[in-house]
Simulated scan of single mutants.
Amino acid sequence: MTPDNIRTKKLPIAVNLGVAVAALVVSAALVLGLGLGNWVLVVFVGAVLYLAALFAAATRVEGRRSARNRIWKTLIYSACILAILPLASVVWTLVSKGAARLDGDFFGSSMNNIGARDANGGAYHAIIGTLEQVGIATLMAVPLGVLGAIYLVEYGRGKFALTVRFFVDVMTGIPSIVAGLFILAFWVLIVSPWFNNGTPRFSGFAASLALTVLMLPTIVRSTEEMLRLVPGPLREGAYALGVPQWKTILKVVLPTALPGIVTGVMLAVARAAGETAPVLLVAGGAAAINFDAFAGNQSSLALYVYQQAGDASRYAPDRAWTAALTLVALVLVLTITAKLLARRNRLS
């Protein structure tokens, strides 16, 4: 038997492309010719016709089993493209509309004394506020979240661990405005007057507390799942060598799960950086630059976008788009940096 006899026939790529073009042409003729809809319906009907024609052609050339495999592979690729299209659309929109104000004035000035007819004005105060608020929230949320996850995985047993896990699950879906109202009622109205001669005070630190409440459940859940994925033999090997449990967790378990933990932390950071309601409720927002996160109103990029998007000035939309692009770029840079650091420190 020669090799040519044992090879299965394959549908040529040219035939595949021809079927796709023919399906789109027939779909356009039906939909546009009869006035049934626009190009969206043309693509949908064309995809259905393409799958039907491809199945028939593949069945004739490759057989029914290979044809089914080809159809499912096409559906999977199509689903992947559909999932990527919204992301690509968002990125393209941000870059195309946000590039208008990518200048030194935008990154070096605030909105203080900027009127509706002023074309200048930037987001320097909002960038400072975002970095301080998210940074403080990260410093508080990451140790608490990681330690909580370590307790649930390594030590937690009984009703108390189940209670902690239950409340973490409940907090995962808490609306951001609820976290802001909680910090407003507790910190701004009750605690802050103790340090301000009996007068409630807005601050960036209050916003950090609200962001910490939002970040904690994400960090706990993601870290818990990553710790559970660490192979048991790694722990058992360390215990067999006489290494205490706390040192095993510190030197073996955490380095192994570090890339996944960093991913969860960055998801929490991205969510915190994009929150508007907590900053609006407890930080108040400000047009001027405020470097002190513990006293006075402070803005953030998300709040800046919200305010500029609703401003009546014709220059405000450009500022809003550029601020949104800056926020996405900031989160992207932090994520890449954290992933690179985690890769360097990962246990081989």
Score class of each variant (00 low, 15 high):
Thr2Met: 07
Asp4Tyr: 11
Gly18Glu: 10
Ala23Asn: 01
Ala28Glu: 09
Ala29Ser: 10
Val31Gly: 00
Leu36Gly: 00
Leu36Lys: 01
Asn38Phe: 01
Trp39Gln: 00
Val40Ile: 12
Val43Arg: 00
Phe44Val: 03
Val48Arg: 00
Val48Cys: 02
Tyr50Val: 08
Ala53Asn: 07
Ala56Val: 15
Trp72Ile: 06
Ile81Thr: 12
Leu85Trp: 02
Leu85Glu: 00
Ala88Val: 14
Ala88His: 01
Val91Gly: 04
Ala100Phe: 07
Arg117Leu: 14
Ala126Glu: 03
Ile127Asn: 07
Leu131Asp: 06
Gln133Tyr: 05
Ala141Gly: 12
Gly148Cys: 14
Ala149Thr: 07
Lys159Trp: 15
Thr163Asn: 05
Met171Gln: 14
Met171Ala: 15
Thr172Glu: 13
Ile177Gln: 04
Val178Tyr: 07
Gly180Glu: 05
Pro200Cys: 06
Ser203Gln: 11
Gly204Asp: 13
Phe205Glu: 13
Ala206Met: 10
Ala206Asn: 13
Val213Tyr: 03
Arg221Tyr: 06
Arg228Phe: 04
Ala240Phe: 02
Pro244His: 09
Trp246Asp: 05
Pro255His: 11
Gly260Asn: 02
Gly264Ile: 05
Val265Cys: 13
Ala268Tyr: 04
Val269Asp: 04
Thr276Leu: 07
Gly284Cys: 11
Gly285His: 08
Ala287Asp: 13
Asp292Ala: 09
Phe294Asn: 13
Asn297Leu: 06
Tyr304Val: 04
Tyr306Val: 09
Ala309Pro: 01
Arg314Phe: 12
Arg319Asn: 11
Thr322Lys: 06
Thr326Gln: 02
Thr326Arg: 00
Thr326Tyr: 01
Val333Ala: 07
Thr335His: 09
Ala342Ser: 15
Arg343Thr: 13
Arg343Leu: 12
Arg344Ala: 14
